[in-house]
Design a binder for these strands. Structure first.
Lengths: 124, 124
DNA sequence: GTTACAATCACGCCGCGTAAATGTCA
DNA sequence: ATGACATTTACGCGGCGTGATTGTAA
């Protein structure tokens, strides 16, 4: 797959995918002789994970940390590092949970706001 | 009230309040002889309205439009402009409703993400 | 005369959008 | 050789954060 297809499937712009590469979140699996980026199915999944973190307001640096932890778990046989990576994942999990809570309250406030707007527009 | 108090009550930074002024969203009711901004209770409400629009992703320009429409309704006795202002408020209302919907789906996705993160951190 | 609060520049940052100019795939 | 797709480079922008320096309020 080249960048256009992966971007469309995941729902990101080409610019964004290249930006994530620049920031060390993802590297294309290969390139054509002419320099076109080539991605695997697995990397599409990686980009999807990144996209899922966005609405929670994680920074690109945080996304990188999370991915590094995940990579460490997936690709390491040594013991000490594995435990540490698990701990970092755990920290991200609790962080994500509180962010979800925040998002929930924001939604509630937004609903109120929307309702009051409709009232002001029609009624009053 | 001066800027520090109003900012604290509304939950915005001083910088943000000044920025909104620079962008034409709000003007302090008065200034002290030395130049300190002074705000009224009503203006605190105006800032709250602004803050409520933020989670829905409205731009500062859009906030200004909405406020202008509201001001037109509040402070005009002429007929034609009033109807137009009402129409603009209505447009904002439907816009806000769709944005609330988007937020809802984002929340749902975020919940899934959070759950999968916790599973990855503890289980597997 | 302190101490807290405020004023005005002004530069910086993040997460991309958006050309512009050039090369590559089928 | 013609599109469609891609490459790099670079400048721009929104929404503030964060000093630095100086003045005002009580």
């Amino acid at each position: 797959m080249q960048i256009g297809e992966v971007a469309e499937r995941v729902g990101l712009s080409l610019r964004t995918v290249r930006y994530y590469e620049e920031q060390g979140l993802i590297t294309p699996d290969a390139r054509t002789d002419g320099g076109f980026r080539l991605y695997t199915e697995e990397q599409a999944g990686r980009l999807l994970l990144i996209k899922q973190m966005k609405p929670l307001g994680f920074t690109v640096a945080e996304m990188r940390e999370l991915l590094e932890a995940r990579d460490a778990i997936a690709g390491s046989a040594s013991g000490g590092e594995l435990a540490a990576a698990h701990a970092r994942l755990g920290a991200f999990a609790t962080d994500a949970a509180t962010r979800v809570e925040d998002l929930r309250t924001q939604l509630a406030l937004a609903e109120q706001f929307s309702a009051s707007l409709e009232a002001a527009a029609s009624g009053h």
